[in-house]
Computed example of a mutant assay.
Amino acid sequence: MRVPVVAPAGDRAERSVARPFVLSRPHGTVAAEGIDQRFDSASAAADALRSGRVTALTGALPFAPGHPAALTAPHALRHSPAPLETPRPSLPPIRISTALPSEAEHVDRVATALRLLRSDDSDLLKVVLARALVLDAERPVGADDLLAALTRNDPLGNGFAVDLTPAGDVWAGRHLVGSSPEVLVRRQGDRVTAHPLAGSAPRHPDPEVDRATGERLAASAKNLAEHAHVVDALRAALEPLCTDLEIPDRPSLTSTRQLWHLGTPVAGRLRDPGTTALDLALAVHPTPAICGTPTAAARDLILDLEGDRGFYAGALGWCDADGDGEWMVTIRCAVLEPDGVTLTAYAGGGIVAASDPADELAETTVKFGTVLEALGVHS
């Protein structure tokens, strides 16, 4: 999908989040204060951290490697031991104005992918296709209020807000906000952990139906195969960097308010203590959970069908002077334009040969629920 660009409006500073980065997680909140340096190159930022020229990094990586990153070396990195706690924000009415693409076109894109996935002439095994909804607020809203709404609506307190200005002029004043449930990679000392999610099913308000839905997901050959692609790729990326890599043979069920997911907890020990959390994120991103398998073929198809994703399906996180940090997969998210009025929300799903186009459309609709429910969006 081609990310819409909206001309900047006045009062940008008043509506932007005062801190360039905030990540709220069940085990604590990390926030950046002030700006010492900005980087649009992830490799240059990683080099600056390893060399000691900066003492911390926060921000976002784009979906496509080589595209501009939005990374900040802050004055200070503040940690608190609990999820973000804020008053309930007073948001204006927010409504859906446009679907990018239309639902019919998204179904057509899935059908195009399925022809390749089922062809003997293609090596494509999985591709993740996404769509977007453009949202309009009745009056300007700030990224801090969106962050508060998203975090309060998540049972575990997940939420993030990232200033995308370091990525260059087209991103100046735009903010990435969301509530991602998926850990790309985390480093604490020499311990490395990850928790990839792939394969999902919608939750149901009836407890018996909901439990049966989760059980069907855990036994689904289609979803187990999709999940295996992600785990295999993560293993291949981490084995050169880690020892004692522990990966369960089968995924387990995990859930959000909207969805059941298949998830696999991964743990290992660093081979080289100089490998930072940002280095690890760059090594494993993008995973098949948000791109596909093989990576290059899936990325080429996504670019052909959707255009540039920008920061959707990228990664966001932080890394300190010790190399510790945490990076999340950028899903269940939206980009707030500098006018404070326009947001673009994103949702995608993994397509494999056994997929059904109508089911894949329905999956994206459910995934939009994380953002739409939190913001009280009405069509």
Rank of each mutant, 00 (worst) to 15 (best):
A9N: 02
P20V: 09
L23M: 04
S24Y: 04
P26S: 04
V30H: 03
R38E: 15
G52I: 10
F63K: 02
A69L: 04
A69P: 05
A70S: 13
P74F: 10
R78A: 14
P89L: 08
S90D: 14
P93Y: 10
L100A: 05
V107E: 12
D108C: 14
V110I: 13
V110M: 11
S122W: 12
V127A: 12
A130V: 10
L135N: 02
D136T: 14
L146Y: 03
A148C: 10
L150I: 13
T151L: 07
P166L: 02
S179T: 10
S200T: 14
S200M: 08
H204R: 14
E208T: 15
E215N: 09
A228Y: 02
A233W: 03
R235F: 10
D244V: 10
E246R: 08
D249S: 14
S252T: 14
S252P: 03
R257P: 08
G263R: 03
V266A: 05
A277H: 04
A277I: 05
T295S: 13
F311H: 00
C319T: 11
D320K: 06
A321Q: 05
W327Q: 00
W327D: 02
D339R: 07
T344V: 15
G348F: 03
F368E: 01
G369M: 07
E373D: 15
